[in-house]
């Protein structure tokens, strides 16, 4: 039985709306996330774990996926463009979108600046791509730290951060419904210690490293699951900074 609309990144709000209207009682599956699906051998071994997740999940749920909503613009990455082509070639129904305009942009980011735990912030932002709930009632918290980047494959690294951590980078762009807003993506609070994270082999490492040097933050790239030393490094930076 096909009961899943799969997606990655931030599909254009218009195609999400159409999918919700057309398909009732289906699940929306975020292919970016590591659910422990079996590995498929399509990509080179040394490749972005998030793109690997897309393939692993797509094949694991193949019999249940109605179609895949696939961002292919600057709001995601070149790898997603190629993934959309390959998955089409492999028999999936793929509806591509480009969400580069700023017509939907919100001026505030209540989840990113709230006092709820960082891992929950990331989960809420990601879930809200589909749900579009209003979180304006969340209280602003004065930040003790910053986290810049994308949702990491290994969400456990987020548990190291204090609750008073503000989110920056692509996740902030997603919350503000502007997944390609390079100025917003570069924005950080210069007065707080910030960890600049990118997934190993992702082009965003370029920006993460540059911004970390510009603002005196900590640059971290992680491939797949974080080791204990990487977690200890983040912990030390947050405590010493």
């Amino acid at each position: 039985m096909k009961d899943i609309i799969a997606f990655w990144g931030y599909p254009h709000p218009d195609i999400i709306k159409r999918a919700k209207e057309e398909y009732k009682n289906v699940q929306f599956l975020d292919l970016d996330v590591d659910f422990g699906a079996n590995k498929v051998s399509i990509l080179p071994e040394n490749y972005c774990t998030i793109i690997k997740n897309i393939y692993n999940n797509a094949y694991f749920y193949k019999d249940r996926i109605i179609k895949i909503l696939a961002p292919i613009g600057k709001d995601k990455c070149d790898s997603a463009l190629f993934a959309a082509e390959i998955l089409k070639d492999e028999g999936f129904i793929v509806e591509t979108s480009i969400f580069e305009e700023k017509n939907f942009k919100k001026e505030i980011a209540p989840i990113s600046t709230s006092s709820i735990p960082l891992k929950t912030k990331v989960e809420l932002i990601t879930k809200n791509i589909i749900e579009q709930k209003n979180y304006d009632n969340l209280d602003y918290v004065k930040p003790k730290a910053g986290f810049w980047g994308v949702p990491p494959n290994d969400l456990s690294i987020l548990e190291i951060f204090p609750n008073e951590t503000h989110i920056f980078g692509w996740m902030r762009c997603v919350e503000q419904m502007a997944p390609y807003d390079i100025e917003l993506e570069k924005f950080v609070d210069k007065n707080i210690k910030t960890v600049f994270f990118a997934q190993t082999f992702c082009a965003k490492n370029q920006l993460a490293k540059y911004l970390s040097q510009k603002y005196g933050g900590l640059y971290v790239d992680i491939d797949g699951i974080s080791n204990s030393s990487t977690k200890a490094k983040i912990e030390a930076y947050l405590r010493l900074g």
């Binding site: 699940q27 929306f28 599956l29 975020d30 996330v33 659910f35 006092s115 709820i116 735990p117 929950t120 989960e123 809420l124 990601t126 879930k127 589909i130 749900e131 979180y135 190291i160 951060f161 204090p162 609750n163 912990e235 947050l238 405590r239």
Partner: peptide
């Protein structure tokens, strides 16, 4: 000695991403 940051807020609700159940966030 300080150890890890203290977590002073408990959140229940969205502990997974792939099944938007409509569950409310409780802080």
């Amino acid at each position: 000695f300080k150890g890890r940051f203290d977590k002073k807020i408990k959140v229940t609700g969205p502990d997974y991403l792939h099944d938007p159940s409509g569950e409310e966030l409780i802080i």
